[in-house]
């Protein structure tokens, strides 16, 4: 079983960031390139509204989330649509995950055994959301080639786990544009088979920096099964107050 334990792009997306110094690299050091790309997303804080669509061959469902993120380790989001689920919230802090349901009026902390489960029936696992950047800590990176996308240079990066690092993905592949926008992330198992991949598209300027507004996570062997994130609203901030990322705010959100 794969317990995805990687820096997730969803969080990165949610955690979108203030701008990293735009030192457009010439021949980039792969480690620095990946770190810079992650910093580009991570930044300090953001507020966003995201529509998440889970698509299955015979089934589709959408919901809208409102999310606050700060740094890479803190985020909180609430379902605002559909009305039936309104008020359900999730708090992520230091790799841990709590969820609140207004109907039973209780906060539940997810046990570690549940972290590999899919989140809300999507193609993202709880770990995808909660685990911080093991890609930066537990992997070594190399640039394997370059492409061109819309007149910009794109680096192909292959990331392999460091010896004895506690990871599950046997390999990850990234496509990082020279302005640090991540275009694609691929997740491989220990046999180097592609498990799932996330593609970014619809890159638009947000607060002055280009940001992909659509993310699609797709299982490798299932063309017709994916989870799509559409950013409806995205704002980058210098910081957000501590009290946002607390259990009491999860329970009684200030909205």
């Amino acid at each position: 079983m794969h317990r995805p334990r990687y820096r997730t792009l969803m969080i990165m997306a949610l955690t979108a960031a203030a701008i990293a110094p735009c030192a457009y690299a010439q021949a980039p050091d792969p480690g620095k390139l990946v770190t810079a790309a992650f910093d580009y997303w991570r930044g300090t804080a953001s507020i966003s509204t995201v529509k998440m669509t889970v698509h299955r061959p015979d089934w589709e469902r959408s919901m809208t989330l409102k999310a606050w993120t700060r740094g890479e380790k803190e985020s909180i989001f609430f379902i605002i649509e559909p009305a039936k689920d309104q008020g359900n919230g999730t708090l992520l802090k230091d790799g841990q995950m709590w969820t609140f349901n207004p109907k039973v009026n209780q906060v539940i902390k997810l046990p570690p055994s549940m972290m590999s489960q899919e989140w809300m029936g999507s193609d993202y696992s709880n770990n995808d959301l909660a685990k911080s950047d093991t890609l930066l800590i537990d992997y070594t990176h190399e640039v394997t080639g370059t492409e061109t996308d819309a007149g910009k240079k794109v680096y192909l990066v292959k990331s392999t786990p460091k010896p004895r690092a506690p990871v599950i993905w046997g390999m990850q592949k990234l496509k990082i544009r020279e302005d640090y926008v991540i275009l694609r992330e691929e997740f491989y198992d220990e046999d180097m088979n592609l498990v799932k991949a996330m593609d970014a598209s619809d890159i638009r300027p947000v607060d002055g920096k280009p940001f992909p507004m659509v993310w699609i996570m797709r299982k490798a062997d299932k063309e017709n099964e994916y989870t799509r994130l559409d950013y409806r609203d995205l704002k980058f901030l210098a910081t957000l107050p501590d009290r946002l990322f607390t259990l009491s705010n999860l329970r009684n959100p200030e909205r």
Binding site: R61, M63, K84, N88, T99, N101, V104, I108, M120, G121
Partner: peptide
């Protein structure tokens, strides 16, 4: 006991 899961229509299923 509190039960929290996902309903058939994808909604949040919760009950005590």
């Amino acid at each position: 006991l509190v039960v929290l899961g996902q309903g058939r229509d994808g909604s949040v299923a919760a009950t005590v």
